[in-house]
Amino acid sequence: MKRSNEPIFWSLFGAGGMLAALIGPALVFITGIAVPFGLFFKPDTMSYAHMLAFSQSWAGKIFVLAVIALFLWHAAHRIHILLHDFGVHAVTAVRVLCYGGAFAGTVIAAYTLLMIKA
């Protein structure tokens, strides 16, 4: 029997969903609302110097990659099923588009992080 590749995609979906459920609201509040509009945090929290220093550390690189990549894989899996629910039955095309998009995003994020040297 051919082995299914479903567990890989489902694990990435689950990990992304869990990460988003645990810290997603806090991240959106920080990066999208509080810091840009000067609430609760110091105004330079997301300054170039701070963000550069953060993504120069290995802990920072792993965190940024985990958030971007896992969110993308989580969303790709759900959108892939969602398109099926709305009657788009081009299974291969939908899979290539969704998982391919998540893969491309992961590669771009990983490459950018690796190029940011200390």
Binding site: G16, A20, G24, V28, T31, G32, Y48, M51, L52, S55, V64, V67, I68, F71, L72, H74, A75, A76, H77, R78, I79, L82, G105, I108, A109, T112, L113, M115, I116
Partner: peptide, 19 residues
């Protein structure tokens, strides 16, 4: 999921801009 994807893409753009 559509909004999760949109937010992730926005962060990705920010990361690329940082680089």
């Amino acid at each position: 999921a559509v909004f999760v994807a949109a937010y992730a893409v926005l962060l990705l753009v920010g990361l690329v801009r940082l680089g």
